[in-house]
Design a protein around this nucleic acid. Structure first.
Lengths: 197, 197
DNA sequence: CGCTTAATTGATCAGGGTCAATCGTGGTGG
DNA sequence: CCACCACGATTGACCCTGATCAATTAAGCG
């Protein structure tokens, strides 16, 4: 594909890279889900993005990483050495284009995320999150969340309690079903889309 | 620089491109400030980024734009045709690398922005904004804001009133001075940095 | 079958939004 | 030249959403 990389496995909760490390590689997700995040001085954590199979992450412009990445669940990744890919890109136009494509993908994600964080209420955020996540799996209406409520909260800039309340409210309103903590059923996509504004 | 583009001038408040238009070009700022933003169904607006001279903006992965761009004040820009740059990049590795560099720059901005929008209080946001903006001008401690309070509010996910209150509070606390609406003086950078957390 | 960790639920509080009035400032025309 | 106007910014009063604190329930796991 992009270039020859090495396949690695990362166990749930373990670190892939951390803030301050040299930016000498990036990754493609083969299996599992990855969260890319940043930590503020106090305990606060902001999740910048979740990455699912097929996506590439770990691009940074600086020599030192500003972000950390962790495995949300057990992951299989391909790790590409930055320098060797840059060398390949030097010769092979296709690699160069691929690279740009993936970075643009990341940019779009980041922009959509900023929109989500900006001017939106709690239910709006959670609804938008569910809709976005529903597009990743095979079944648009029944899927399981790879991440905890805390992850969702840190992604949406909310507290775990508010996420929980938003979900149960949507369930009471018959918009979604929550068969178990990690499973979601979209009973009424139309209203969910309305809620997501 | 990147490739031959055409220089254009855009008057304050005027549109550079809008959501829904084909993504057939991108721009470099020579003079002035640009805001890139998105509009929600109701009146709400989210400013994704401000761009200052030297920066490049208008990259999108989709064929149709998801964002709009407007001139915060009178602007001088270079407009690059996407197709011709891609052709150049095909032949010239340097162009290709430049392109990647600028997109990565945009990505970093978007990520920092998301962090700002996420888990932060109003004063924290405004303080961080002032610090970031102070780095653009020549004088780190005295500078003028190119944008209105509304712009700042829409960038930070706050209301105009809250931005105003945060500013006057910082002024009362002797952290900043506000000689006039558009001018800012940083009297106490250390505490400002504390406020920005 | 306890023990630990995640999630839900409830009660209270505060930060920021909303509504509304006032103040400035720059531009225009008499 | 100055009065008036329009628009942006500030300030105040009040309210509401989501955070906080705390207790309870649920779910894995040894």
């Amino acid at each position: 594909m992009l270039a020859a990389g090495t396949v690695i496995h990362v166990r749930e909760g373990h670190e892939i890279f951390a803030e301050g490390m040299p930016t000498d590689s990036f990754y493609k997700v083969l299996g599992g889900v990855v969260r890319v995040c940043r930590f503020l001085g106090d305990g606060r954590r902001q999740i910048e993005a979740f990455h699912v199979p097929g996506e590439v992450f770990g691009f940074e412009i600086d020599a030192e990483r500003n972000l950390s990445a962790e495995a949300v669940n057990d992951c299989t990744l391909v790790c590409y050495r930055r320098r060797s890919v840059e060398q390949m890109a030097q010769k092979d136009q296709a690699v160069s284009r691929q690279l740009l494509h993936h970075v643009l993908q990341n940019l779009k994600q980041a922009q959509d995320h900023a929109l989500l964080l900006g001017r939106r209420g709690a239910v709006e955020k959670v609804a938008a999150f569910l809709l976005a996540w529903s597009r990743h799996g095979t079944d648009r209406r029944d899927f399981t969340l790879a991440m905890t409520r805390q992850d969702i909260a840190d992604y949406l800039g909310l507290t775990i309690e508010t996420v929980s309340r938003s979900l149960t409210q949507m369930e009471r309103d018959g918009v979604i079903g929550i068969p178990n903590t990690r499973a979601i059923h979209l009973s009424n996509v139309a209203t969910l889309e309305k809620l997501a504004a």
